[in-house]
């Protein structure tokens, strides 16, 4: 197992240590500059915009994804195993489609003269310039949900399957309605699982970038300018100082969530 650990150390741990060191240094040389880089990052307008957009994205997507996938999982779990497998295949399929393969489709869908506007026109609604206005945010949310619905649905299904059937039967005998069964039995019993799913989805949502990048490149419409775009652009500008400080800040924030996730794994 040593080579494996060594490799992880060489490619991730040691260099990240170096980045932490650099985050306290001036870009040009070796001069120590304390928290200056951090101050620059936090006062940077682009950083604020990107952080705000990322937070907004997470806050919109997360509840939407969780509720939609739970709904689908609840509906799907009533069916026989064979049908369930078919449904699962359909919703998991986007995981097997490389983002690059759907770029053209996405451009066709959301172009000013694209499919979506065509459909809207058919319904008598005026067209939207999806990629160059705030509507780009909706496109990003849509892409994220499309890609991750199956993943989260599988997590919910696993949680639902862990509730023993006998409990439902007993409740049915006592005359509990399905809404009552859901709120009084299912939700409390899968509560520890809910927390885990929330944290996993949260962490996954930081990884949405491929779709956004492919649809709109390095400088997308302002509302979907995410931290990931910012880091890429800092990288292209060789702003090593800002990037180092930014990486450390982001790693700390995500580390916090990972700590929470680890706590919920341990509680069970």
């Amino acid at each position: 197992m040593l080579p494996g650990l060594l490799g992880i150390a060489v490619f991730y741990l040691i260099p990240f240590g170096d980045v932490v060191r650099r985050s306290f240094l001036q870009m040009s040389g070796e001069a120590f500059c304390g928290m200056d880089n951090y101050r620059t990052v936090f006062s940077n307008a682009a950083f604020r915009l990107a952080a705000k957009n990322t937070a907004r994205f997470v806050l919109v997507c997360l509840p939407l994804l969780l509720v939609l996938s739970l709904l689908l999982a609840l509906l799907a779990s009533r069916f026989s195993v064979r049908l369930l497998t078919v449904f699962k295949s359909a919703f998991l399929l986007p995981m097997a489609i490389p983002a690059a393969s759907v770029v053209l489709l996405w451009r066709l869908l959301f172009d000013v003269n694209g499919f979506v506007n065509g459909a809207l026109h058919g319904m008598g609604i005026s067209s939207v310039d999806w990629m160059n206005t705030g509507a780009a945010f909706a496109v990003l949310v849509f892409s994220y949900i499309w890609k991750n619905l199956g993943y989260t649905m599988i997590l919910w299904l696993a949680g639902l399957a862990s509730v023993p059937k006998e409990v439902y039967e007993a409740a049915a005998i006592d005359g509990a309605k399905s809404a009552a069964r859901f709120f009084k039995i299912t939700l409390p019993l899968i509560r520890p699982m809910i927390f885990t799913i929330v944290v996993i989805s949260l962490l996954n949502s930081f990884k949405v970038f491929r779709e956004a990048y492919l649809v709109s490149g390095n400088y997308p419409q302002e509302s979907i300018y995410l931290l990931q775009h910012l880091f890429n652009n800092w990288f292209l500008d060789l702003s090593v100082d800002k990037m180092a400080a930014g990486s450390v800040v982001l790693a700390l924030v995500i580390g916090l969530f990972v700590g929470i996730l680890a706590r919920c794994w341990e509680e069970r």
Binding site: I8, V10, F11, Y12, L13, I14, P15, F16, D18, V19, L203, F206, K207, F209, L227, Q228, F231, N232, F235, V240, M243, A244, S247, L250, A251, I254, G255, F257, V258, L261, A262
Partner: peptide, 21 residues
């Protein structure tokens, strides 16, 4: 714990360190 942290970090966070190596 480090494994979990590293797998959860978006690529952009480790991009600079990977580049340097």
């Amino acid at each position: 714990m480090l494994c979990i942290l590293l797998m959860m970090l978006p690529f952009q966070v480790t991009m600079l360190s990977a580049y340097l190596v």
